[in-house]
Design a protein around this nucleic acid. Structure first.
Length: 503
RNA sequence: UCCCCGAUAGCUCAACUGGUAGAGCGAGCGGCUGUUAACCGCUAGGUUGUAGGUUCGAGUCCUACUCGGGGAGCCA
């Protein structure tokens, strides 16, 4: 005999015809004189509950009618399938208990500004969009662990307090460790290399801190990163691992989140293309592409498209503005006003893109071998491809000290970035590590780093050094890519931004 | 750090070139038996971010500041 006194909405599909009790929060409600529709959420989904006058006490009917959004309650009723309902099932209510009534819940079903929502993140989490992203994040992290665990990797928890820089000293957060200056980790990589010499294949997964002064849609000061590190591997091996890994997690996220991705408006067909092999370019190839005619042509075409788009939006706005002047019902006016707000936002975005296009074209044409690929350069390369792109063999001087120099072409290092397609940009950075003791000592000196801090790291090259390497994948960036979310701050529950921590 | 934009009701936005500050949502009350951001009627809700200036008159113009958004550099 199944227990129907505490049922989750996600399980309703197996309960058709049965009487069950749900516990949750009032997501939204509509009412007519003698019938009410309450949308309840319980953390597993949404369910529309139908309340007909006469089937419950009048007092309760009135109380429910007045109940504010996000009040907590339990409802009891019979489950039935109905296409008109969210989720395909609804509850014909026979009884309800209000646990805690709410009035004036600050977040309404209408639109809100960014600042307001971040200030109310503790409540905004309850909204459909944030809930879907949270669920997707959960399955992504689960898939990441599953991939490494099933492929012979050992999890190593690397420390958060560290005494040295691995990724450039300007981006360190300082901490006071009982009077000793210390900082928060920028990567677990160096410790992970030590572990790889013990376990062979390892990974770490945790928060990472970078004090980058970057106020963009792609940056957080605290973000989660997974980093595998493998002994006895070369660059080709790393690329193969990375493309298998990314394909696996994308596939897994899709399998587990179809309806959530659809709710978010994601085009599943583009994600289904994410299968090995990915495109492979060297840095030199990328430089040639950027400075070549093809790119200029590509950008020129893009500019044309953007201008067309702008014109279309503008004429649509003019049309609506004209319409607004005519005689209309109030609700029609409101609808037009809402559409106008949306169109104006689109227009502003298109304008920014139009403004940036020539700048990007100029930057691309002026690209000189030796510079690091800029954000706009990455965007261009990734826009020109429908699958992720590896860019390998960067000039060593633009990259971190620990990257292994190519033994034939000594100016470049054996590293790679993985750019997500359609303009999203970098989600992975990785490299083969310098395994030669003398070369590494030289690099540490060249970068002006304090050699004392790296003694233990150099030991790894003294005692059985082997070719090895690894990479880091940014979790929030991956989520933003998969969910087509514009800003990375929506991809973590409580984001830490460059100049502000809300809650 | 630099460049651009913004700040008007609890929220999202209006207010043509300076001339009595308006809608919707939300809240309260009433109506409606299948709603999908439901709908319809009524009510309440404001020192227009702060400080100063120009003017007969400032939400609107000028200066400074504060806060926010977008972009650039750098990166996962």
């Amino acid at each position: 005999m199944p227990n129907n006194r505490n049922v989750y909405i996600a399980d309703l599909k197996d309960k058709t015809g049965q009487e069950v009790t749900l516990s949750g929060w009032l997501y939204n409600s509509r009412s007519s004189g003698k019938i009410q529709f309450l949308i309840i959420r319980d953390g597993t989904g949404l369910c529309q509950c139908i309340i007909e006058k006469g089937k419950i006490p009048d007092k309760l009917f009135d109380d429910l009618k007045r109940l504010g959004r996000e009040s907590s309650l339990t409802v009891t009723g019979t489950v039935r399938a109905d296409e008109r309902s969210v989720g395909g099932h609804e509850l014909a209510v026979t009884d309800a208990k209000i646990i805690s009534p709410t009035d004036s819940y600050p977040i309404t079903p209408k639109s809100h500004g960014v600042d307001f929502l971040l200030k109310h993140r503790h409540l905004h989490m309850r909204s459909q969009r944030q809930w879907c992203i949270g669920k997707i994040r959960h399955t992504l992290i689960d898939a990441i662990r599953m991939f490494f665990n099933d492929n012979g990797f050992t999890l190593i928890d690397t420390p958060i307090f560290t005494s040295f820089a691995a990724e450039g000293e300007q981006t360190l957060f300082e901490a006071d460790y009982f009077g000793t200056p210390m900082h928060l980790t920028q990567t677990g990589q160096l410790h992970l290399e030590a572990a790889a010499m013990s376990f062979g294949k390892v990974y770490c997964f945790g928060p990472t801190f970078r004090a980058e002064k970057s106020k963009t849609r792609r940056h957080l000061t605290e973000f989660w990163m997974v980093e595998p590190e493998i002994a006895f591997i070369d660059l080709d091996g790393l690329l193969e691992l990375a493309e298998n890994f990314v394909s696996f997690i994308v596939d897994r996220v899709m399998q587990k989140n179809r309806s959530r991705l659809q709710t978010l408006g994601v085009d599943l067909a583009t994600l289904e293309k994410i299968k090995p092999p990915f495109y492979r370019l060297t840095y030199t190839d990328a430089a040639d592409i950027l400075t070549g005619d093809r790119t200029q042509k590509f950008l020129a075409e893009q500019l044309e498209q953007l201008k067309n788009q702008k014109q279309q939006t503008e004429s649509k706005i003019a049309e609506l503005e004209e319409k607004q002047k005519g005689r209309l019902k109030q609700w029609q006016k409101d609808k037009i006003a809402a559409e106008l707000i949306e169109l104006r936002t689109d227009l502003a975005e298109t304008d920014t893109k139009i403004e940036n296009n020539p700048k990007h074209a100029k930057l691309a044409s002026e690209f000189r071998w030796g510079k690091d690929l800029g954000g706009s350069d990455e965007t261009i390369i990734s826009q020109m491809h429908d699958k992720p792109v590896f860019v390998t063999h960067y000039p060593g001087e633009a990259k971190a000290f620990y990257m292994k120099a190519d033994r034939k072409e000594t100016k470049v290092v054996l590293n790679f970035d993985l750019l997500a397609p359609a303009g999203f940009g970098e989600i992975i950075g990785g490299s083969v590590r310098e395994d030669d003791y003398d070369l590494l000592v030289k690099r540490i000196a060249e970068y002006g780093l304090n050699a004392e801090n790296y003694e233990w790291y150099l030991d790894l090259r003294k005692y059985g050094s082997v070719p090895h390497g690894g990479f880091g994948l940014g979790v929030e960036r991956t989520i933003a890519w998969l969910t087509a979310e514009k800003h990375i701050r929506q991809c973590i529950a409580f984001p830490r931004l460059m100049d502000k921590i809300y809650i």
